[in-house]
């Protein structure tokens, strides 16, 4: 079976792309990947996606997107792609945990994942006090003191959310300046339950079967302290989920997929270095990282793929 479009990823970019291609009667398959629904499933209320005057739960929004694509015939599989290659006839072969998939075009919409520090102690205690998702795990820290690592908007948002459960939340940041927007930082600073520790670098997370503390090194003095805590929430940024694409499409040094962004606005804006392969959403976008932007880019990638099939259609006889 030869698909017209295979979309890797199931966040707003992937679902919007699928909505457009399946409405254009292109045979469309979504491979949902490791986290079906993507990052929206780990947020709470989404108030900045237009069309929902009262806000909508992130997970509900993405489930509704899924239902909408299915209405137009998109096929969805919970598979994970391990590699993509181009076959001599110009079509593509995707290797997945559910077998091989063949397609005329590919849309990469794999998104990004929360970054971890990369410490062995962090890996050992993941799900035992170490978390990268306050909205998922905050509930288990009722009455416990916790720390949030990071200095951006995510760190402020997570810290504010955690005060619903925790009597004391400490934001630990390796510098003394914050990337967070003024409004978010101000809100956190005004909250009496939130404390700040700056210029502190995380050396180790302490605990055997559960987190009991965190070892911090002062960035200026080098002094090492052990700070007692029962929970460590990481909010140190995101990395694009593009590891499996290395050597197939061009990636920038941070792993974001490079798209052509042709100079002429009439040329495709979402095509990668490989003709027939397009990319959209957080896996190409280190700057905006918004559901609505991802959705918009998904639409662009779908229209670019559609055009590609129109012009190359006669070459693919599979």
């Amino acid at each position: 079976m030869m698909y017209d479009v295979v979309i890797i990823g199931s966040g707003p970019a992937g679902y919007t792309a699928a909505l457009y291609t399946s409405r254009a009667f292109l045979k469309t398959l979504i491979l949902s990947g490791l986290v079906p629904g993507g990052q929206l499933t780990t947020t709470t209320e989404v108030d900045n996606f237009p069309g929902f005057p009262k806000g909508i739960l992130g997970s509900q929004l993405v489930m509704d997107m899924k239902t909408q694509t299915e209405r137009f015939g998109t096929e969805i599989r919970n598979s994970v792609v391990s590699s993509v290659s181009k076959s001599p006839d110009g079509t593509f072969i995707l290797t997945t945990d559910g077998g091989e998939v063949r397609t005329k075009t590919v849309i990469i919409a794999t998104g990004a994942s929360a970054m971890y520090l990369g410490l062995p102690s962090e890996e050992k205690l993941r799900g035992k006090g170490v978390s990268a998702c306050a909205t998922c795990d905050g509930f288990f820290f009722r009455g416990k003191v916790v720390v949030v690592i990071g200095g951006g908007d995510t760190a402020m948002e997570e810290a504010t959310f955690l005060t619903k459960f925790s009597p004391k939340v400490t934001i630990i940041h390796r510098r003394d300046e914050f990337r967070a927007s003024a409004i978010m930082l101000d809100r956190a600073k005004k909250d009496p339950r939130i404390a700040f520790l700056t210029n502190k670098i995380v050396e180790e997370i302490v605990g055997e079967t559960e987190v009991t503390g965190i070892r911090l090194k002062d960035a200026k003095t080098g002094e090492v302290i052990e700070y007692p805590t029962q929970g460590v929430f990481l909010a140190i940024g995101h990395k694009p989920n593009t590891e499996f694409l290395k050597g197939f499409v061009d990636l920038d040094p941070k792993g974001y997929v490079v798209v052509t962004r042709a100079a002429s606005p009439l040329s495709p804006q979402t095509e990668t270095a490989v003709p027939g392969v397009f990319a959209a959403g957080d896996c190409v976008d280190p700057r905006y990282r918004q559901a609505i932007v991802a959705a918009g880019q998904g639409c662009m990638a779908a229209m670019d793929a559609e055009k590609y099939i129109e012009t190359h259609g006669t070459e693919n006889h599979a």
Binding site: V35, P36, G37, L40, T41, T42, T43, T44, L57, G58, S59, Q60, M63, N78, C133, T135, C136, F139
Partner: peptide, 12 residues
């Protein structure tokens, strides 16, 4: 109920 990823896990 409030856990987004759980809504995804449920059907699986």
């Amino acid at each position: 109920v409030w856990c987004g990823p759980c809504q995804v896990q449920g059907p699986i």
